Structure formats: C-alpha cells, structure tokens
Computed example of a mutant assay.
Amino acid sequence: MSSATAALARARETFARGERVEMGPLADSLEVNRVTLYRWVGNREDLLAELLWERMKRGLDRLDARVRRAGSTGADRLTQVILGFFAAAGHGSPERAFVDREPALAMRVMTAGPVHDRLIAWFTAAIEEEATAGTVAPLHPPAQIADIVVRSGEAVFWFDRASGRGIDRDNLIVILSALCPATAPQ
C-alpha cells in the first residue's frame, strides 16, 4: 500500500467512526511527520474533501442504482437521488457527526471546492443521460441546471441543519420539473 493510500485508509477509518480527523494524530499513527503527511494528502480541508467525496460518490451511486431498479427515470429519478442523497447525511452518519462537530468547516468543505464541483459534475452527467434517453428536455445547459439543483439541495440541507424543520421536498421537485420537464419516452 502506498504512503498516500495508507494515510487515506487510516483517515477513512477515523472519519467512518464519526471521529475528528486531525493531521497530527494521523501523522503519528503512520509514523511520519506532518510535512510528509501534507505532501501525501494536502492540508486537512483537502483530506476531508476527499473523504467526503468518496463517501458521497458511493452513496450517490448506490442510491441512483436503487432508484433506477425501482423504475424511476427523468426528473423523478433526479429528484429522488438529490433528496435521498441529502437525507442520507442525517443523524447517525459520519457526515452528520462532522457537520455537528465543525459546522463552519463542514459547510466550507461541502459547498465549495472539489466536493461541490464533483457533485455538480455527477448531476450534470445524470441530466445528460436522461436527456439522451429522451425522458427530460432540459431548458438550460445541464451543467447550469445541475449547479442550481446542487445549490438548492445544499440550501435545503443547511436550512434543515439550522432550523430543524426538515427537508422541503416539494421545492426541489418544483425546481427539477421546471428546469427538466418530462418528455414522452421514445
């Protein structure tokens, strides 16, 4: 196992237990200094972004497969995935432990930089796939719609976190059906 791989694996285990990932203890556990660890994985925010994206990507892919097996397509598929995705980061998850423990850092890592960009890319590909299948007719470029959808999902997630009022499913459904109206299956 390469050094960066070992560092990611150890950090992944710590994060999955819902514990705080710290660079000093991580370097100590790998018997390297912090400078070496930083060379391998970047700074703490870079490492957390990578850990979060790994978990998010696996969750998105699993959720999407389940939604597809149930026969959902078009805006319905996209809505179920985005709602399920943000709901999965609920109480008891390592992501929620991170959000509860370090809300400002979690918001920065999750809504800016590579995590946000990768979420937009994932949803762009899903919208393009549905458009190619003829199940939606996007009214704007898929990347622009994906950006709006992801930002809306993030707003819902963070509003729920701040208010405790729950996810507003109806607004996300309205946004997706307005931007990606259904077409007749071909």
Rank of each mutant, 00 (worst) to 15 (best):
A4D: 03
A4C: 05
L8V: 14
L8I: 12
A11F: 03
T14E: 08
A16L: 13
A16C: 14
V21H: 04
M23V: 10
L26Y: 03
L26F: 02
A27R: 06
D28A: 13
V32Q: 11
N33Y: 10
R34Y: 06
T36F: 07
L37V: 07
L37T: 07
R39L: 08
V41T: 15
G42N: 04
R44Q: 04
D46A: 11
D46C: 07
A49T: 08
E50Q: 10
L51C: 09
E54L: 14
R55W: 15
R58A: 15
D61K: 14
D61I: 14
D61V: 15
R62S: 11
R62F: 09
L63I: 10
L63R: 07
L63E: 04
V67I: 02
V67P: 04
R68V: 10
R69H: 14
G71M: 01
G71A: 06
G71C: 09
G74Y: 00
G74L: 01
A75Y: 05
T79A: 07
Q80Y: 02
V81I: 07
I82N: 06
I82Y: 01
A88W: 08
G90D: 01
G92I: 00
F98M: 00
V99R: 05
V99Y: 06
P103N: 11
A104V: 14
A104P: 06
L105R: 15
L105F: 10
V109E: 02
M110S: 15
A112T: 11
G113P: 14
G113T: 12
P114H: 03
P114T: 12
H116F: 14
H116P: 06
H116V: 07
D117S: 05
L119Y: 03
I120R: 00
I120D: 01
T124D: 13
A125H: 05
T132W: 00
T135Q: 01
L139F: 06
A143G: 07
A143R: 13
Q144Y: 11
Q144M: 11
Q144S: 12
A146L: 01
V149C: 05
V149R: 06
S152A: 12
S152D: 02
A155P: 05
A155E: 06
V156S: 11
F157V: 04
F159V: 12
A162V: 13
S163F: 00
G164K: 11
R165I: 13
G166S: 10
I167E: 01
I167C: 04
D168F: 09
N171L: 06
N171E: 04
N171Y: 11
L172F: 04
I175Y: 09
L176D: 05
S177H: 07
A178Y: 07
A178G: 14
L179W: 03
L179I: 02
P181T: 03
A182P: 03
T183N: 01
T183Q: 08
T183P: 02
P185H: 02
Q186Y: 07
